[in-house]
Amino acid sequence: MKKLCFYINSDWYFSLHWKERAVAAIDSGYQVHVICNFSSDDERRSLELLGLITHNSNMSEQSLNPFFLMKDVYRSCKILKEISPDIIHCITIKACIIGGLYSKIYNKNLVLSFVGLGRVFSSEVIVYKLLKKIVTKLYAWISKKKNVFFIFEHENDRCEIVNRTGIDINKTFVINGAGVNLSDFNYVEEDDREIPVVLFAGRLIWSKGLKDLIDAKIALREQGVDFVLDVAGFIVKNDPDSIPQSLIEDWSCKGIIRWLGKSNNVSELIKKSNIIALPSVYAEGVPRILIEAAAIGRATIAYDTGGCGSIIKNNETGYLIEKSNFPELLDKLQVLLVDIELRKEFGKRASIKAVDGFSSKKVIETTLGIYKNLIANY
């Protein structure tokens, strides 16, 4: 039995974006291991019940401290050596670099996934600019392996990394995000409400754009246009970009937002909403919330960052706004709030687009095909 090992920073991120592919790999005959920082025993047990073999890396996810990095390298390489996988699938930058180094030394089949380029490639902070140079050189070095494959969530990221590193484009592939299970996220026409509901769902970090939605709510209310702003997500610990929980609670107490906390049933939240908004300035992949919203048939509005344009077709399925252009965000959000028939039409078109190009079935088949190709040829 061939061994496949997923190596990733966070347990919640693996469960949200990769669990379906891991279970499909088990069904295809692989023994599947997961290495990540398990912050929740419940999350770990739920994966083990699905047949996955879990390993806690205790990785310091956000830290740039060289001492912690060396500990991460030692612990992770020790686990990888014990597993001795036939394929290592690395996700997120730190895992890609450590897993890439290990696979280079021990000549393991390697898949690297770029789920958006993140702060390392988008931030103008000096430390991140320095990291970008180092990471770029390491990617170029790792790419010289014969048995390596690079997966991107959208074409813009592939072009940037290929141009920066000189990676052979034949070693790359674009898969449109994590996909969506169309049985769970099926089209449901929105309910007519006297006061529309706008849903923001995601990590509660400043760069995801929640503050712009709050400012939009306040500005539009002064113009006589009101909406309920539902906020679902979780506080990110040990991240300088995290929105403090005290501020979230303050916004909730003042009635600016309706704070829903972390949700295990996002499809129901989307169905109870009229518009899904993500004014993120973060270097996104293809945000899952936008794919899920499209599948259910909701108009979406987002800044044109990362892969948001892969799922939103401007003025057809929603509005794609120039990054950080708050006046345009305000204007287009007002259009969606006021014009019920327009947003319903956007939602219908969005659902068709999701069915055609973003089903999890297609994502799983393509990913398993890459594993099969590596095993067969190397």
Rank of each mutant, 00 (worst) to 15 (best):
F6V: 03
Y13W: 14
R21H: 06
A22N: 00
A25M: 05
I26L: 12
V34K: 01
D41Q: 11
R44E: 08
L47P: 03
G51K: 12
L52V: 02
H55T: 13
N58I: 01
M59Y: 00
S63Y: 04
N65E: 08
F68R: 14
L69E: 14
E82F: 08
D86R: 07
I97K: 01
G99N: 12
G99K: 09
K104Q: 13
K108W: 03
L112C: 13
G116D: 07
G116A: 12
G118I: 12
Y128E: 05
K132Q: 09
K133R: 11
I134H: 09
L138P: 02
K144P: 00
E160W: 12
I161T: 02
N163K: 14
I167W: 02
K171F: 06
F173Y: 13
I175F: 03
N176S: 13
D184V: 06
V198E: 00
V198A: 04
L199C: 01
I205R: 05
K208S: 12
K211V: 04
D212C: 07
K217I: 05
I218Y: 14
Q223S: 13
I235P: 00
V236L: 05
V236C: 02
N238E: 14
D239I: 13
S242P: 02
S252V: 07
I270D: 01
K272I: 06
K272Q: 10
Y282D: 07
P287Q: 12
I291S: 00
I291N: 00
Y303D: 04
G307A: 11
K313C: 04
Y319C: 06
K323E: 14
S324A: 15
P327V: 15
L329Q: 03
V335Q: 15
L336R: 08
F346C: 01
S360N: 06
I364Y: 05
T366C: 10
L368C: 09
A376L: 10
A376Q: 11
Y378G: 15
